[in-house]
Design a protein around this nucleic acid. Structure first.
Length: 252
DNA sequence: AGCGATGTTCGCCG
DNA sequence: TCGGCGAACATCGC
């Protein structure tokens, strides 16, 4: 599930439950999701440490430990973060369990093991090297920056919005939502977009993401005129009432 | 039983 | 060089 709004929710969940507790031990039964480390290596790194803060950039959640280093969480298609009370049993598909010394726990669940947990010694260096684009909700990211990043590209708008190096955070679901509300055809080449379309895309992007975060990223709480609640099976368009047609763009 | 899925990456090709 | 496309990854659920 996780696109930007979901990751923002996981961030809130972690901040509300897991900061400043001392880490007693971890369980990492799925070494496949550990990048550049092992269960033992990660355990050594975290034991005795505390989480001290978080930074989200696009779909990535960076969790700071009190030694000034970070852990990068990427949730793939099915990852989620769940805070647990002292005697709560870890949920099914728990791929990483962090146990604090007061009994509280934090579980990373991920049925399909496509995400990653990666220790970073230097967050700044990682960000500089990863080529990750700006976060669309970053207050310093404005319309002028949006235009600058898009205007020299030649690809189709849907692929471009989903390209994490251009803008970080949009996936299939939210890109479709934004294109629908901004009335821009997904296969439209960037060079064919006119100024008003860029304006609609930028402002729609911000509004959709902020609204989604406000609704806890749960599509069943989204406004009824959005596409998301109507995109399944033979539902009809919330704007014109005609049946929704499916096309393929950017491979999906 | 088969296929799609809210993601990322890589190799191939125009 | 840029960008589209399909496959692969791992696993569930419709």
């Amino acid at each position: 599930m996780p696109e930007l709004p979901e990751v923002a929710r996981f961030q809130q969940a972690l901040e509300g439950s897991s900061l400043r507790r001392s880490i007693a031990r971890i369980h990492a039964p799925a070494p496949e999701i550990l990048a550049d480390t092992s269960p033992i290596g990660l355990g050594r790194r975290l034991a005795g440490r505390r989480f001290s803060g978080t930074i989200r950039r696009g779909k990535n959640l960076f969790v700071e430990t009190d030694d000034g280093r970070h852990l990068r969480f990427h949730f793939g298609m099915t990852g989620a973060l769940r805070p647990l009370g002292p005697r709560d049993p870890p949920p099914e598909y728990t791929r990483l369990l962090v146990e604090f010394d007061d009994g509280h726990q934090l579980a990373l669940t991920m049925p399909r093991k496509l995400g990653a947990v990666e220790p970073l010694d230097n967050l700044e260096a990682y960000l500089a090297e990863a080529g990750l684009g700006p976060d669309p909700l970053d207050p310093t990211f404005g319309y002028a920056d949006f235009l600058t990043r898009l205007q020299d590209l030649r690809g189709m708008i849907r692929s471009t919005l989903m390209n994490q190096e251009v803008i970080a955070g949009l996936g299939s679901l939210y890109t479709d939502e934004i294109l629908f509300q901004a009335r821009v055809y997904p296969r439209k080449p960037i060079p064919n977009l006119k100024q008003p379309a860029f304006g609609r895309l930028f402002h729609t992007m911000r509004r959709v993401l902020q609204t989604a975060i406000g609704r806890r990223a749960q599509p069943d709480r989204f406004p009824d005129h959005w596409l998301a609640p109507h995109r399944n099976q033979e539902m009809s368009c919330p704007r014109c009432g005609r049946p929704i047609e499916r096309i393929k763009a950017a491979g999906r």
